[in-house]
Design a protein around this nucleic acid. Structure first.
Lengths: 340, 340
DNA sequence: CTGAAAGCGCTAACAA
DNA sequence: TTGTTAGCGCTTTCAG
């Protein structure tokens, strides 16, 4: 069925509605924008006309005329380790769902650090993490576009940030291991270019220090968050002469890999090695041993991000107060750690 | 409120560029749109002016004026099993990256089947899978909006589809097991509301039939793609009195779960059970035994989808030829199967 | 409470 | 080649 959009099918416009309802287009516009000052009688007539004509206002025209935009761009660094993750999906899911609910259009930008964003026409931007694209953030910020950063707390820019308290989360995890009697505790870190990984390492260090344990550099294994590097780290770790009795791993997917390696080497979890992960990735539940982990409220972070951005976008020109929020984590104790 | 056009912060428009370059706005417009008919001298002057003023055309105004839209909406059913997957991320990554390259804006719609899409203003739609939202597709189609469906081949609608040849892929996998001497082959299926899962089951059946093996209903385990259900299925399967010697699993993440369960029950892979997965999820590489699997070209599918949509969007009014494409899979043989 | 009219920033005939 | 001139579909003063 070839059907082209020739003359007959020009889509219905506000004018058609106005004509059918017997009012002017301004009145129709008022109804669309929920202005209170329309006589009930007219409002009904217009609503009926809208329904009858199946009228949907042109977002584009609305934007052009009003100068406002309800498009939210989500900028995610196109960064291997970051994007192949439970984390990224959760974020997209959370933001996507809330945007839908708030009638915001979600523009997805997978970005390398260099390509500049098309900033015109977007009403606001959510930066998920800042990895190499700090400049993009500053550009947008300087242009006066409402911005929110999530999963990264930037102190030196007046922009709202919503992050996870990775440092405390990590510290709690390690404290827990210490409370079980562990003294030789290793850490497998994520990619330290991400703030999350860096903070988790900090938390690990802080816990050791506060408990008077000495920090051994050999106990710190740095990875890019990939399972491959987690595997090497685990192998190295388990073969150490003075092998640790516990390990805090910066992500669940890596922790699962560590468990797998341990099992392959004939070690029992948690008998031979206690493990704490980070993420509360549902996959952690299904292994032979349920993984003890640090739950981070990703969905909440995503939602807060959208809400905060919405607030800023709404307060046109009004003074906006910047908020730096750190969301608390929660230690989820399952079966992968044992008391010494 | 005082928001006049004479205020200092009005962003630079095509008019400013025209004035600075000493030409009319139409000429500037031509340069923006790469029309060949502009004198080189002017082109340079205009380009300079654009650079000097840091001018970026307003996408919104461009759209309104031209009636064209370079916004591509990606509609993903907000469907538990589907969205929590390697598959979804790959898709988003593939589509996101190519859209960026083609200067298309990507609008992400995570949708339940009921909320109607805001169809005005989008230039085209990519439906990733059709699960309960067939109506949305038809609505868009009937409105004459360019549509492409990926990961699902719909025969009874004149819309371009790009899918994976799941049936053949599954058949090949099972044929491979048969060629190794297996006769008792089970299947753990995904959620059969998805076409992919249904076709994989079909392929499994076809392979058995063509090889003269009888189909045992007890050997077919139906799941929702989750690891949890894969676990139960694996447990049931391994405890069967007449347990199969091989299993074809509809996704890698489920296959990994099966491996884990087998190991817990003291079984060796592949000695006691041969396993073939589906996806070529990188996680399959890192276990103790590398997973044999069926590789599906997700990124290619995503890219083809975008390209096809681009083609349709460009051919304004011209007769569009519908294409139904099925992309071939590839059996990746690793270490999880043994010859009987 | 309502309508007329002036744009929003740009594209696309049509002239020149 | 270039400029002129209509709009695109809607919002928003400003009168009434």
């Amino acid at each position: 069925m070839a059907r082209s959009k020739k003359s007959p099918s020009r889509s219905v416009s506000i004018e058609d509605v106005a004509r059918l309802a017997g009012v002017s287009i301004s009145t129709v516009s008022r109804v669309i924008n929920k202005s209170p000052s329309v006589k009930e009688r007219n409002r009904i007539k217009i609503l009926d006309a809208i329904k009858e004509l199946k009228f949907q206002p042109s977002v584009v025209a609305q934007r052009l005329a009003s100068g406002k935009s309800n498009v939210v761009a989500l900028v995610i660094p196109r960064y291997e380790g970051v994007f192949y993750s439970f984390y990224a999906l959760e974020l997209i899911r959370g933001i996507g769902t809330l945007c839908a609910a708030l009638k915001l259009d979600l523009l997805l930008h997978l970005t390398d650090s260099r390509t500049l964003l098309n900033l015109k026409g977007v009403g606001g931007i959510i930066f998920a993490d800042i990895i190499g694209n700090r400049q993009q953030l500053e550009d947008a910020f300087n242009l006066g576009i409402p911005c929110v950063v999530i999963n990264n707390c930037i102190e030196d820019l007046a922009v709202s940030c919503i992050g996870i308290d990775n440092k405390s989360g990590a510290e709690n995890a390690v404290n827990y291991l210490i409370s079980l009697g562990h003294k030789k505790i290793a850490h497998i870190s994520g990619d330290l270019v991400t703030q999350a990984a860096a903070m988790r390492l900090e938390g690990y260090k802080r816990a050791l220090k506060k408990n008077g344990l000495t920090l051994k550099e050999e106990y710190i294994f740095k990875t890019d968050y990939s399972r491959g590097q987690a595997r090497s780290a685990a192998e190295d770790l388990l073969k150490m002469p003075d092998a640790p009795s516990a390990v805090f791993v910066a992500s669940d997917s890596m922790a699962l890999e560590v468990m797998a390696v341990a099992r392959e080497l004939g070690k029992d979890i948690p008998r031979d090695l206690s493990i704490v992960g980070f993420d509360d990735n549902p996959s952690g539940l299904y292994g032979p041993v349920a993984l003890t982990t640090v739950r981070q409220p990703l969905i909440k972070m995503a939602e807060e991000g959208v809400r905060e951005l919405g607030r800023i976008m709404d307060s046109k020109n009004a003074p906006v107060k910047i908020k730096k929020t750190l969301l608390a984590t929660e230690l989820v104790i399952r079966d992968s750690c044992k008391e010494l």
